[in-house]
Amino acid sequence: MAIHPLRFFDVNCGIGPYYNPPPGHDPSVSALLRGMDELGIAESAVYHFQAQQYDYRVGNETLLRETAEHDRLHPALMVGPGHTGEAHSPDEVAALMRSGGARILKMFFGVQPFVPGPDPFLMAPLLDRVAERRPLLILDHADIHGVRFDWIVDILEGWPGVKVILVLPKLEYHERYFYALWERFDGFFLELAGDQTMGTLEAIVARFGPERVVYGSRYPYFTPLQTMLQVIYSEIDDEAKRKIAGGNVRSLMEDVIL
């Protein structure tokens, strides 16, 4: 179908089986690609639910295998502290980034207290190993109200090559933190999935420019359409929309050294 002129890049898509899908959900890569085509989404960053909900290694290996043949899909490796071996070691992550062309790392946490978050003390070995490659690090907190902004500050201060993208933010709750982070750091970005206060996107662009925000959907939990429409109808200029829809992420990806 004829669509919008924006080349959307969705930074937050999941494939594979997960705990609580709605009836009839198809977890496959082909279903994701079909949905992207319906809405005119050009590219997506994809993680595998088994890496998030079951086993880092099983999920990441499946992810790389299933996305390898699709240029429009970019693997987001699920990472965590590698001290006890469930998560990949820093060397293994570096090797997977190179072999799988993975420019994006992702952490999912907060769903249970034993799932480690991006505590800089625990993540230091991995960040020390990969920071020079300038990866994107997506932080996905199951309970956004529990985000430790001091950890984000420590990561941005300690490893300035890493670009941190916080997904599913509640702008109306944490906007002051985001503004404070943007006043100090260039490496912090927000993804837009979820409910966002009316006019907030425009306010951010007016204050900080359009480079700090990226489009993401949280597919398959959320429909990709709603945030697309928010961007399309936003009261910002076309160039700002182009950057938010996908230009910003593409620029960040080009900056990654594999």
């Binding site: 966002q196 206060t197 429909t223 709603q226 945030t227 429409l229």
Partner: peptide
């Protein structure tokens, strides 16, 4: 607390 176009989705 949310945006019209967003909620058309």
């Amino acid at each position: 607390l949310d945006d019209f176009a967003h909620r058309w989705g």
